[in-house]
Simulated assay, not measured.
Amino acid sequence: MADEEGGTGTHEALPNGADTTPQIGLISQYVKDLSFENPNAPAVYQWQEQPQIDVQFNIGATPVADDVHEVVLKIDIKAQGANGVAFLAELAYAGLFGMRNVPVEQVQPFLLAEAPRLVFPFARRVLADAIRDGGFPPLLLEPIDFGALYMQQAEAAQAQQGDGETVGHA
């Protein structure tokens, strides 16, 4: 068997049938950071009105090794009522993704749209359990169309860069 790291480093040296097919795999997923605050316990359990729930999302991607990226889905939740804050929950849920032979123009769309879609159900469960364990009904977040969000942000960034220039569409 040939040593992949040895040799000339040229792709021509690869044997016929070498694997050049794009491949992506989820290596691992994990809670990177989790915080739940119940600042008004035990009085909060006597409040009658439903709190307003504010949910904020942030997605980040960082290369951690050759062909391996960490994607972090950060979700911040604040439940605020007339009497004060019912609870605060913050979660940074991460996934390690291995990527090989992926066209460079497809890397960012995968990392910022598809990867968060894959880890979201697990992050949603972690938050629902944490909120339930805090003495509240579990909060089941609605599914999010990360692809549409990515496209909106990409179009906004393109429009901002264009700043009056005509930009072609692919």
Rank of each mutant, 00 (worst) to 15 (best):
G84M: 09
F110M: 07
R132A: 14
A130Q: 13
E90C: 05
I27G: 05
A43P: 12
L112K: 11
P42E: 04
N40C: 05
Q158A: 15
T166Y: 05
R117D: 11
A89P: 07
D129L: 12
E37N: 14
L34Y: 09
T62F: 15
T20L: 14
N16G: 12
E12C: 09
A43L: 14
V126I: 12
P63V: 11
A154G: 00
A61Y: 12
D129C: 11
I59W: 05
I59P: 10
R132D: 08
L140T: 07
S28L: 01
F87S: 10
A18P: 08
Q50W: 04
A154L: 07
E90P: 13
P22W: 00
T8L: 07
H11W: 14
Q56V: 01
N38L: 04
A18I: 02
A82P: 09
A13M: 03
R125C: 14
A157N: 07
F97W: 07
L141Q: 04
L91H: 15
P109I: 04
Y93T: 04
A128D: 07
L96D: 04
G168W: 09
D19M: 01
Y93E: 05
A89T: 06
Q52T: 10
L139Q: 13
G6Y: 06
A123P: 05
A170W: 08
L14C: 11
P51F: 02
V64Y: 10
V102I: 13
V119Y: 02
L118S: 10
A13N: 03
E165R: 08
V102H: 14
A123K: 01
T21W: 06
L112W: 00
V44Y: 01
